[in-house]
Design a binder for these strands. Structure first.
Lengths: 227, 227
DNA sequence: CCAGTATGCGTATCTGATACGCAAAGTGGA
DNA sequence: TCCACTTTGCGTATCAGATACGCATACTGG
C-alpha cells in the first residue's frame, strides 16, 4: 500500500477481499493435467475451479497458497510459486475479490477427495475467470521450462532421460529429438547420473536425478547481450 | 475468492486490504532512475516510497495503478504492467495490506510536485518493503528487455541507434558493442528507419522509430526447443 | 583544410542448435 | 539358442546467431 495521502484510512473501506487460487499441474500419460474442484456455493456452483480461498489476516500469500493446496491435495509436496494477480471488478459475481494466483507443480497427479484431474489441452468450462488463470499458468510454465530447471518439480527423484523428455514434450506440446535433448540437458550440468539403471522391455536406461531440486535460473550463467 | 467451502463468507473478515504500488522507471544521463515520493503518514513518515495506495471497490488493479501513477506523475503516458504481489503480514506496520506492484516505464524522468528521481543503482533507504519491490522491478525489466521490444517505452518516438543503445546499457548495466548492437537490433525488424537524421557535433545519425509501440514477445518467433 | 570523433558497414570466428547416422544392450519369440 | 526388434547411447555434419574487431564515411571545429 504505502502512503494514504488524503485517501481513506487504512482500516476503512476494506471492501476488496484477498484470496489465492492455486493451479496444480502434473504430467500424466505424456500430457499436462490440472487439478480442479467443484464450486459449492454461489452462482457458479457445480462448475469446476482451481483450489483456493481467502487469505487470513496473519498469514502470508505464500502460506495461504500452501494451505489451500494442502487442504485439497494433502501431502502433495509441490513446488509453489506466485503466478499473477487477477482483480477485475466483475470476476467474482458475489463480491469484489482480488485473487493472487499460484502455480503448483507436482511430480504425479495424486488422487484426493473431490479433486478431478483434467488434461490441460481440453479443460472444461471453468468457473469465474479461471480459464484465463489456466492460460497464464501454462504459458508461464512453458516459458520457465526453457530457461530454468523447473522440470525437477514435475518428475520423481530419479528418472531416465526418456522420462524427462516426456515431461518437456508434455509441457511444450511438441516432440523433441531424443539425441539432441540428451546432449542439451546433459551439457547444462543440472543432472547427476546414478549407478543404477531402469530395466524395461529393451536396453536398460541409466537413471539420473537433479543435482539441485530448487529453482535455478539458467539465463544468469549465459549472459545475453541482445539489443 | 473461489469456493468458500466452510470458510468465512465473502463479505466477512475483510481484514486484508488491497493496494497497488507503482515503480516508475526512466533513463536519465545514461542511468536508470526511479521516481519516489515521501511517505506522509505513519511510522515510515519522511522515508521515500513508490507512489501507490488503496484499490477502489469498482476499479480494476490496472486502473488503480494508472490512477496512482497519474496522481503523482500526471500526463506521463507510461507503459504500465503488473509486476508481482507482495503480501507479507508485517510489510506495513499499520495494518495488513497486500500490494500489487506495477512497473511503469517512462520515456523521460518527468518532473512533478513531490516526486524525487533517484538512480536505481544507489537508492536511498526506502519505506516498507519497497527495496524488495525495486529489486524485483529492475530484475524484471532486465529480463524482459532481452526478449521483448519493451525498450520502446523507455525512449522517445524517434531516436538514433546510439540513443537506443544507451537505454539498453543503462538497464543492463554494462557496455555493448556498437556494431553488434546495430546488427542485432536491425535484424529483429522492429525498427523503421526515417528519412531524417540527427545532427550533433560529428557525423549525423539516422533516426529510427519503433514499428510497433506496444509489447511484443520475440521468443514466440524463434521457438526454442531446449531440453 | 586537417585533426578528431561518431556513424555505418563488413568479415572472421566461435558457440550453440538442429538434422540425422549408427553402434550397443537389452527382451521376447521362433 | 539365436535372431528380429526396440530403445539407449554416442558421434558427425551443417546451419544460425553471437561475438570480436577492422575500417571507410561524414560530419564539426579549430
Amino acid at each position: 500500500m504505502t502512503q494514504l495521502s488524503g485517501e481513506a484510512a487504512a482500516h476503512r473501506d476494506a471492501t476488496v477481499g484477498v484470496a489465492v487460487d492455486v493451479v496444480p499441474l502434473a504430467i500424466d500419460d505424456g500430457r499436462l493435467h490440472a487439478a480442479l474442484v467443484p464450486v459449492v456455493n454461489g452462482r457458479e456452483r457445480g462448475r469446476l475451479a482451481f483450489p483456493g480461498g481467502r487469505v487470513r489476516e496473519s498469514e502470508s500469500l505464500d502460506a495461504a497458497a500452501g494451505r489451500w493446496l494442502e487442504r485439497h491435495l494433502p501431502g502433495s509436496d509441490a513446488h509453489v510459486e506466485q503466478l499473477y494477480t487477477f482483480g477485475e471488478p466483475g470476476r467474482d459475481p458475489a463480491s469484489r475479490v482480488v485473487s493472487v494466483a499460484y502455480l503448483a507443480l507436482l511430480a504425479r497427479p495424486m488422487a484426493a477427495p473431490g479433486i478431478v484431474w483434467h488434461p490441460c489441452d481440453a479443460l472444461p468450462h471453468l468457473a469465474y475467470d479461471h480459464a484465463a488463470i489456466a492460460r497464464v499458468a501454462i504459458e508461464r510454465l512453458r516459458g520457465k521450462l526453457a530457461y530454468t530447471n523447473l522440470a525437477f518439480a514435475l518428475i520423481g527423484r530419479t528418472f531416465t532421460l526418456a522420462e524427462l523428455q516426456q515431461v518437456y514434450e508434455a509441457v511444450l506440446g511438441r516432440p523433441l529429438d531424443r539425441r539432441n535433448f540428451r546432449k542439451r540437458v546433459l551439457s547444462l550440468g543440472l543432472l547427476t547420473p546414478l549407478a543404477e539403471t531402469r530395466h524395461g522391455a529393451h536396453r536398460p536406461a541409466r537413471l539420473y536425478r537433479f543435482a539441485v531440486r530448487r529453482p535455478i535460473d539458467l539465463a544468469m550463467a549465459g549472459e545475453r547481450t541482445h539489443g
